[in-house]
Amino acid sequence: MKKILEVNDLHITFSTYGGEIKAVRGVDFELHEGETLAIVGESGCGKSVTANSIMRLIPSPAGKIANGEIIFKGNDLAKESDKNMRKIRGVDISMIFQDPMTALNPTLTIGNQLTEGLRQHKNVSRKEAEQKALEMLDLVGIPNPEERLKQYPHQFSGGMRQRIVIAIALICEPDLLIADEPTTALDVTIQAQILELFETIQEETNVAIILITHDLGVVAKAADRIAVMYAGKIIESGTKYEVFYEPQHPYTQGLLNSIPRLDQKGEKLEPIDGTPPDLFSPPVGCPFTARCPHAMFVCEKVYPLRHEPSETHYADCWLYDERVHTPNLMNKKEETT
């Protein structure tokens, strides 16, 4: 499998009146053709900002890529000019947004919104573009596409609109599709349909997908690999099975314990106490220390070294380090204070 995206040590900051928010603090990941990577985490952990930065769509001038590289097919997108970025957006990398009710322009027909990207980037006639649009509507499962092309967004249901958004994203046959919470605004039955649609599309076009979500159910269905983000860092990453069945980081374990399971009836759900740290002045050590049931002295002071149980799986946590078993470091935080 060809590697198409490699993100190295990405830092993104936002300047506000209150100071500089370090939204993303050194994120690395890579993506291969036809693969789905799910980035999960709670609100404000930096997952959407990471996704938007690949498209270079973080709101400027407030937000900027402070450091790091985004290597897409050999080019560093972090340093690309705006003009070149426009040739990449929509053609090589596409994006799907969270809320299909607001992602479509209410004053333009579906046909217009479908074909404009194609007409902008590829030298096609109006007729060819419309033909392609019909094919796309057919692919995403919209009945009567000829008639539908002339209609406006308000004439479609939420699920239909998300299908159209997907059709728009795919019309130029991109290599990478970034889906930012594509199912959050939809009800459960439509969610399942949309996720199945992703699967079908991936089989047909071999597109790589970055799936941003906080819904572990969606991850379980759609992802190949998972990256768990917390406070602007990826704290654990692995294949779907590794992360679900052998979670290493206490945060991942907490996340998995906080969702209801069908096979364990009557058990109480375990919430993770506390809130994520303030990103104006993020902690130097592990950001999860304040909420971690296993927190140690060292966690607060030094960011954990990477623990790698397998070639595809890693977690940033001190628990698995041999050295913490020396008595003075192993002391639990609360016992000593």
Partner: peptide
């Protein structure tokens, strides 16, 4: 969102402003 989407399509800035925003 639809302005962000128009930009995500890689449309030229004047098109985003006139066709999508101004209308």
């Amino acid at each position: 969102d639809y302005i962000k989407m128009a930009r995500a399509k890689g449309l030229a800035p004047y098109k985003v402003v006139i066709k999508h925003a101004l209308k």
